[in-house]
Structures are given as C-alpha cells and as structure tokens.
Design a protein around this nucleic acid. Structure first.
Lengths: 337, 337
DNA sequence: TATAAACGTCGAAGCGCTTCGACGATGAGC
DNA sequence: GCTCATCGTCGAAGCGCTTCGACGTTTATA
C-alpha cells in the first residue's frame, strides 16, 4: 500500500504539505503542488479511508436506509437510490446501504462514525428510526413525513397536492363519479405517510368540487386486483374516472378494465401516480402525475450535505409540487358538456 | 463520543484488555469480561469504525457493485442486493453501494481500503472491471461469467442449463416449433454473459431434440414487444411453445398473445425465466424456471467471506442448477400424441 | 523603507483502535 | 519441589492521516 509518506518522499516535501495540497485547506505554491500531483499519479496514491476518517472525524460516507424486502414499488426505490448515489458521488461521498428495519445497524453506523449523514427512505407516520436519528450527531433527511420530526429534515413529493391535482383534473374533464385505487392494505396499516396524504387530498378536493369520490385500498396480485375493480364497478355504476396510486397493481387494473369491456379512456379515464417510465410502459400511455424519485433522491443528498457543511443550517421540510402530464388515458366522459 | 479508553477506565482494566475481551482474540477471565461488558453497556460504547479499520486493516465492509440505472430487471437486482445485504450482516459486515460503471470508484474503495471484499453484479463477457479486480488485494466474486476470470470467483444461475431445460420441457410436452424471446438488444450487444448462455442452451437442446427453434431479441416497450410477437407469429405459423427470458417484456408478450387470440396455454405454451414472484404475478401463473436471486446473493457473500477468512481458499465458479416449476402456462399442444 | 499581513512549508501531536511482547501468577508434569 | 507451558493482563508501538502552531519569506501598506 502506498501512503502519504511515500508521496511526500517522492515529491520531497513533508506529509503535511501533501495533505494540504490534496485537501486545498492551505495555500500551496503551484510548483510544489505540481510535484505532489506528479508523485500521486506516479504512485497511484489513494488515501486510506479509515485513517482519514480517524484523523478528520469525517468518513465521506452517507448511509442510505432502504426497504430491501422486494415487493414494494421496486422501481421507485431503485430510482431514489440511483439519485442518492449519483448525487452523493458528486459530493465526494460514498453510500453505505442499510436496510430499513435494521435499527441496530442504524446505531452502529452512527455511533461508530461510519457515516457522516443519513438518508432514510420509506418513512412511516410513527417511524421507530426517528428517535434514534434525533439523538445522533449526524444530520439526516427523511424521504417521507413522520408525524413528529423535530430537528429532522424531510423531503417528499407533495402527495396531498398530488391527490388534489388528480381529483381536480378528473373533475375539470367533467367526471362526476371518481375513485382512487390506493396502496396495498399492508402499506396503509403501517401508515406510510404518503398513502394517507394522497387519499386525503383526493377525497377533499373531490368533495370541494362536488364530485362523488371514494378511495379503496388495493393489493397487488392479479386476482385480488381484479376483485377490487369488480367491486368498484359494481358499487359505483356511474364511475368514469380512476386515480391509481399503486404501481404494482397498475397493469392489473388496466387488464381488469379491459376484461370488463371498459375502454380507457373511452369509458374510463385513468390518472396514475407513478414514475414516468412506468406510466409510459403500460399498454396505453397513461396520463400521470410524475413521482420524480431520482430528483427527490438527489435533493435529499443536497439537503443533508448543506447541513453537514454548516451546522447552523436549519432542518426543513420540502414538498415537491406535483405535475400532471396528459397522455392517452384521460378525456371527458361521454356526453359531458 | 465514548472510546475504548472510557470503557477501560470504568471497568478498571487496560484498553488492550477491553480490545481482547471484545474481539475474543485472547483469553480473558470471566469476571473481567463481565465487568467490561457492563461498562460497554453502561456507556453505550461502539468502536470507531475508522480507527478499527486503520489498526486492523479490516473495514468490515464489503462493496456491492450494482447496475443502478433503472430499467434492467429491477426486481432481480433488488433481490440480489437483498440477499447480499442480509448475508453480509450475518457475517458482521456492512455493504457499500457502488454503481456498475464507476470504475474509478472501484479503485477508490479498494486502494483506499474502504472495503474488505467485493460482490460484482451484471457482469459482461469482457467486463472492464475484471482487470481491476484481478489486481486488487481484496477478494471478489462476480455474479455472472466473464470470458476471462483468472483468479476471480464467479457464481450464477446455470443459464445454459436453464435454456436446455426450457427447450427440453417444451419438446417433452410435444411442441415441435418453439421460440425464445430473449433480452433487449442493448443487453445482447454488451454480451452480458447470461444472455448468450441461455440462448446457446435453448437452441442447442432444441436442435438435439429435433425441434424447430429460434431465438429473438426483444425490447421492453409495449409497442415494440407487440411487434416482436407479431413477427414471430407471422414467421412461424406453427409456433406453439415460447420461452421468455425478459422480465420487463413478459407482461406485454402475454398481452400481445391475448390480442391475437392466442390463448396461454391452449394455443401457446409459455415458460418464463424469472424470479418466482414475477411468474406468479402475471395474469396466468406461469410455468417458470426460477431465478433465485436472493440465494445467489447470499452465496456470493459466503464465497467472498471464505476467501477473506482463508487466503488459501481457491477461486471457484459455481453454477446453480435451474429448477422448473410447472404452473398454468404450459401443456401439450393440440393434437399431440 | 520599515512593518504588518499573507504565503508556503514543516514538525509534531494526536484521532481510537489492534496487536506484539512482556511479565507475574497458576497449574501440570515428573 | 522444581521446571515449564498456559493464562490473564498490561504497556507501548504503531496504523495513515489531518491539523495546529511555528517559522522563514514574500508582498503589500503606509
């Protein structure tokens, strides 16, 4: 292994000079800097991460807590993670992968100074991780909104606004009876914050606009989705507008409608809340509200880096405004004015 | 931050004794061990990861290189990653997330001693990472088979056997004209090793069994999949058996068949090569060859840990035998004997 | 032109941990 | 009863890096 001392010897300077040249924390003359850079290149020097962490109290690693049990909207998770990793690299940081339920792991990496900061995904209303995060030295940002988050930064799509937007758009098109197909029961039971919020927004706005609306939970297996759609159509014969926030059920919802001879968008208009590529890879390109997971991941990293750079930087909550893109799955209902 | 010295003071022993008690590398009397454990618990002591890494030349972290650009079989990737993380924890290791194409990152974490070992996913025939891995001190295991892998361990599903198994099963059922719907063109162009291997197995065995077979590449967007199926049916009017190794195209293949009034399995038998939950979440439960991604991820970690524990442990290549589970998407063709 | 400020570099002191060698105290073997 | 290994513990020497204070040397400032 080549050390900073090797570099110093070859460049004929002291190790501290090498350190300063590399970190830029003190001015170094152009000529010695060049000599040092040459030595670094020649030896292929890379600082030892552990030594650096020990001496500087910075590991240059951020922790990312992901729900890793396959199943829940894998696409979304991967996009978040992708955004986080990419942006972390731009900030010269690596990413340590932690699983959502590994509370002990969380304490291990914070108390053991493995990570400088944390990004936490899939936050629930009363998330067990929140109290731990509140008492660690490391700044963290939650993707999602817990009930209580004093001192913690949060970021998320403004799901409530997304629900409102969907209801508003369906109402605007003239739909009088609409419904939301939401998250699987497990998710709702955990009170994963976004699920509650989107429902509230949807139902509230429908109410305001004088439109009949309901919201149903929806599992993800084809037969169960089919049953949900069956029941929905039976209970609401006049249903013409659907808002689906359930990535995995989405294709099966479309299939169930097709089976029942309900054409999208002729008989039923459908708005999806999902990543753009999911909306585009259905049989019909779906009018959708984008879930900009990559962007949110990147922003989460930016936030946490700001707090790392400046201890006085305040905790904040950011809600990303939803945008709706009209595609081929919505139109005015038959006989609308 | 509480240090080993705090623990030593409270337990009234030297720091080295604490270290030995915690690592178990030297015998410690039961009484002092108890005192130390009590002190550790009372202070909530966690060793500083950087200091430990510096002193012991072990970071207790393994690197995981993942193709993080969303798109390619997200489910599979997540399952691999899940298996890796879970098993790594069982070996007292954390996981550092690296992206596939970050070659510099690879060198940074190896040369900088950030990781003790590496698990590398989505390996191509001539993977640029292979030479780097060969010259690092850290052991690594590749998920996939590169053309040349001297000194590196590899593990993967035996994709060639999987191709053979699929062809054999279709032939056994009596299908005379079969086809394989394979990976997207991008994947094939990169010579991602599994794609080549599965095709070879499929065509070879079909040939041996005297069955007409072909293999086509297949993109993932619905219209493109539709076109592929269209062409396939046009070119092979007698086609009754299909083998699909393309998780993202899978639902659209099923849809395209349905559109053309080809019932599965009445008119066309279909075998999928994908994770079990994907096979089960289609409209028809699919006869499938399982891609045991979680298992492979776990095994990869076990392999790399063996090499870490024992420098003499040889590099090896392990191919997991495929298993086929019959479900509702296959049967003998009409009028077969 | 004298004087303070900024520049460029060095040496040394840690950061918190592991591990080697040493050393007294036991217990076994004969 | 004496030797010798083993046990249990300690002290000290690093691991490779950052950073503080110090100390010439320039360069501006008046």
């Amino acid at each position: 292994m080549t050390t900073i001392e090797d570099v110093a010897r070859l460049a004929e300077v002291s190790t501290s000079t090498v350190s300063y040249a590399l970190s830029g924390k003190r001015p170094i003359s152009a000529t010695t800097r060049r000599r040092i850079e040459a030595a670094v290149a020649e030896l292929g020097y890379r600082p030892h991460a552990g030594a650096k962490a020990l001496a500087s109290a910075r590991s240059d690693v951020i922790g990312l807590m992901v729900p890793l049990r396959a199943g829940i909207d894998v696409t979304v998770i991967m996009q978040f993670a992708g955004g986080v990793v990419l942006r972390a690299r731009e900030h010269q940081h690596d990413v340590l992968l932690l699983t959502k339920d590994d509370l002990d792991g969380l304490e291990r990496v914070t108390d053991g100074s493995m990570v400088d900061a944390l990004v936490v995904m899939d936050v629930e209303a009363d998330d067990a991780r929140v109290p731990i995060l509140q008492r660690t030295r490391q700044p963290s940002v939650l993707i999602g909104l817990p009930r209580m988050a004093a001192g913690l930064s949060c970021i998320d799509l403004d799901f409530e606004a997304a629900g409102r937007l969907a209801a508003h758009e369906l109402a605007r098109l003239g739909h009088q009876e609409i419904a939301m197909v939401g998250s699987p029961p497990e998710v709702l039971e955990r009170h994963t914050s976004y699920a509650d919020r989107v429902t509230r927004g949807f139902l509230g706005t429908a109410d305001d606009e004088g439109v009949t609306a309901r919201a149903v939970s929806c599992p993800v297996s084809p037969p169960e989705v089919d049953a949900v759609v069956e029941r929905l159509l039976a209970d609401s014969p006049g249903l013409t507008g659907l808002f689906v926030h359930n990535e995995r059920a989405l294709p099966h919802v479309l299939h169930a409608l097709r089976e029942r001879r309900r054409s999208v968008p002729k008989d039923v208009s459908l708005i999806a809340l999902c990543p753009e590529d999911v909306a585009l890879s259905q049989q019909v390109p779906l009018t959708s509200i984008d879930l900009p997971a990559t962007t949110i991941g990147s922003l989460a990293v930016d936030m946490v880096m700001s707090r790392l750079a400046d201890a006085a930087y305040p905790a904040e909550t950011r809600l990303i405004a939803p945008t709706l893109t009209e595609r081929a799955s919505t139109r005015a209902p038959r006989g609308a004015r």
